[in-house]
Amino acid sequence: MRELVSLLNVFCLLSLLAVGGGSAVLPQMEHETVTIHQWVTADDFATIYSLGQMAPGPNMSMVGLIGFKAANHAGMSNGWAFAAMLVVLLAFYLPSSFLTYAVSHVWDSFKENPWRDAVQRGMAPITIGLMLAGVYAVGKTASFNPQHSFHFNTLTVTIGLAVTAWLFLRRTNPAFLILLGGVVGWFFLRGI
């Protein structure tokens, strides 16, 4: 039960801090769930994040799986783990949704306010910095992991950079490239 309350606290706060989209809270989410609360391992976090990229709909629904794993980790039954998953999903989606719902009522009154533009232009680089920190938070496990061999890391970094470069050159559905990454991984990373 205490674990459910902790999950509620962490993910409600993350919901309201997700300025500029869900990716902005990735570094904080990784730190809270892996290092501070140890609900999931760094490997689990990276895998769960990438599963989110493969599913349709909002990628960040993967937070539900973190709740599920956290409950498993605390020794709860599968029923409770599903409850934890729902708690996390509601905690992550409801607060920001309530805020959006309320603000969209009164939006017109400050749409013309010149400070709105200042807030957007000022927050943009912070969002980008947070997303970059998200790349680092997931990448330090998934791309360049000291626990893996040099050969393994070379391959994972290459897969990542290849996806980055490919997406700049061609319009491709990213889900396809991620699946392709899985095939390449299965073929080349198995023996290492």
Binding site: S50, I128, V138, L161, T164, F168, G181, G185
Partner: peptide
């Protein structure tokens, strides 16, 4: 495990591309 490692590595590349693309002006 090997397939998932490849998937996670590719997901990092995707996030990096999105960050660079959205942030082109800021960089």
């Amino acid at each position: 495990a090997a397939a998932l490692a490849g998937i996670a590595a590719a997901a990092v590349g995707l996030l990096l591309q999105v960050t660079l693309k959205i942030g082109a002006k800021q960089f």
